[in-house]
Structures are given as C-alpha cells and as structure tokens.
C-alpha cells in the first residue's frame, strides 16, 4: 500500500513478540535508543496462541522498571495489530516518533547523542 511514515524507525524481526526479553529492551536504551515499541499480533490471533500476551506482561514490567530508574516508562510501548493492518502500523510509527520527539533524546545521551535513532523491536508474527 506504500503508506508513508517517519524514517526514524529501525525494525528488528522476531519469530513472535513472546520472544522479547527485558534485557534486550534495556540494552536498546543503554545503546542509545530514544524509544522502543514492541509490535505483536492481535490478542487471540497469535499463531503461537499466547506469545503476545506474555510479551505484554514483560513490557509492562520493563515500563515500571524504566520509571524507577529514571528513563521513563512512556518511552516503551506495546501495540497489537495484524499483518493486514498496514495503515495501523504507519499510524503507530508516526505517533510514537512524535511522542518520543516530545520526550526528547534518551536521557543517557542528553549531551552526546549517538546516532539519534529510535529503534523499534517489531515482533514479526509469521
């Protein structure tokens, strides 16, 4: 459909959002990401039955931790969408890019920003 969206997204393909680990997210922030979002299938649609629900639990745990350690949990989000919703993905990409721009660069790199990119972990669902 070639819908246009913000260029600041870098996608990491996974087998299922259920494969996401707290440390991978924390590592992304430590390495310089300004924002991370995990994209999983619609709840109930997961081909591996409950992968995306586990992912949601872990993302919430990391959000709480990010608040505690000062990065701010709202730099991390999880979205549920199906592979047919190209439009929705573009919408998310633009929304999160705007939101992260408001929040400003990663506090860890306030002075020397590494490459100003915001990576995203897309839990590929096929």
């Amino acid at each position: 459909m070639r819908l246009q969206y913000a260029t600041n997204i870098r996608i990491v393909e996974m087998t299922c959002s259920g494969n996401i680990d707290h440390r991978v997210i924390l590592n992304a922030f430590e390495e310089g990401a300004d924002g991370v979002f995990v994209a999983g299938c619609m709840e109930g649609d997961c081909h591996f039955l409950k992968g995306n629900i586990r992912a949601r639990k872990r993302v919430n745990a990391v959000k709480k931790l990010l608040d505690e350690i000062g990065i701010g949990g709202d730099r991390l989000e999880m979205y549920n969408l199906s592979s047919a919703q190209g439009g929705r993905f573009a919408e998310i990409a633009n929304d999160i890019t705007a939101k992260i721009k408001d929040l400003g660069p990663n506090p860890l790199f306030k002075n020397s920003s590494c490459c100003g990119c915001s990576c995203s972990k897309e839990g590929g669902d096929q």
Binding site: H22, R23, L26, F29, E30, I69, G70, I71, P107, L108
Partner: peptide, 18 residues
C-alpha cells in the same frame, strides 16, 4: 541469570543518569 543481568542494566542506567 535473567534477573541478575536486568538488575545490572538497571543499575548502570540509574547511576549514569545520576
């Protein structure tokens, strides 16, 4: 090991922010 490395990362980030 998972919780240990999470805690280490969290600690590093907190201290760097401070």
């Amino acid at each position: 090991e998972k919780e240990t490395e999470i805690m280490a990362a969290a600690l590093r980030i907190m201290r760097k922010l401070e």
